[in-house]
């Protein structure tokens, strides 16, 4: 395996119990994930399996109880310059214009105004938001807002992008367009990304590999390499006949449809 860009090594996370006398909550258990430079990896699992906990540890917001997270061989012990995250919620600040929102990370890191402005404008253009730089978030559609969030994430030029169901709040068609844009951008910029999702087809269409997690306490139960060419073109990948076989494999791993009466 080539040098890992980001690596979760035997990571376990426990949260303190809420009530007295209750046991600690084990969110994730012994997770090992390794993502090479330029690779896009999806992480899929049932809801509540600790996917988001992993993402928070990747961005340094939580520290693992056991094990380590490393980016470029350096241990992650707090928020750092190498990792940026993007959530289902766009988290655009309503009091900032779209351009000012895209500049947020650069502004926090102390970049000069002219430089961050230029960078924000060029990324917004890449994210098809030219002409909306001076709008406020409430004036934009859900898809456009998520594009702005992507521009904000890319603006800090992170080594690794961590994405937690970034498209799950969008309607089906907007979602496909944004997936396409994301895949093209990731390929063009040669970005490394961990994409958490519960959408089986999304995980297959967008990534090089898929990790499957078990129910809580979550651990990796399977790793599937997606052997369909053209990761930068998920629209085309979706039409590939092999997608069906991957979906079937993921469904059986996740026990989808086995408890019919429970649904």
């Amino acid at each position: 395996m080539p040098e890992a860009r980001i690596e979760f090594r035997n990571v376990t996370k426990r949260f303190p119990a809420k009530g007295r006398g209750e046991p600690d909550v084990l969110a994730v258990r012994n997770v090992t994930i390794s993502i090479a430079d330029g690779e896009v990896v999806a992480l899929i699992g049932p809801s509540g399996c600790g996917k988001s906990t992993l993402l928070n540890m990747g961005s340094g917001l939580y520290l693992p109880t056991e094990g380590t997270v490393e980016v470029d061989g350096t241990r992650v012990d707090g928020p750092n310059r190498h990792v940026a995250f993007m959530l289902q919620k766009d988290l655009l600040l309503p009091w900032r214009s779209i351009r000012e929102n895209a500049e947020l990370g650069l502004e926090i890191r102390g970049a000069p105004a002219a430089e961050r402005r230029e960078r924000a404008m060029s990324l917004l253009a890449k994210c098809h938001l030219s002409g909306f730089e001076h709008h406020y978030p409430h004036q934009l559609s859900g898809g456009m807002r998520q594009r702005a969030a992507l521009a904000r994430t890319l603006a800090v030029d992170p080594a690794v992008l961590l994405m937690d169901e970034p498209f799950s709040a969008l309607d089906a068609q907007t979602k496909m367009v944004l997936q396409q844009d994301l895949a093209e951008t990731l390929a063009a910029e040669r970005k490394t990304a961990l994409l958490i999702t519960h959408d089986l087809v999304e995980s297959i269409a967008l990534s090089d590999r898929v990790y499957v997690m078990s129910e809580r306490p979550g651990t990796i139960i399977e790793e599937i390499v997606i052997e369909i060419p053209g990761r930068e073109d998920p629209m085309r990948r979706r039409r590939d006949p092999r997608v069906g076989a991957y979906v079937a494999e993921l469904m059986s791993l996740l026990h989808v449809g086995e408890r019919k009466e429970a649904a």
Partner: peptide, 21 residues
């Protein structure tokens, strides 16, 4: 929204920046 605070923190914001921004 704690996620907004986390967003700022993920960009290595200081306590003062989280308050101000």
């Amino acid at each position: 929204d704690p996620d907004m605070v986390n967003l700022a923190r993920s960009f290595s914001a200081t306590r003062w920046q989280v308050f101000r921004m």
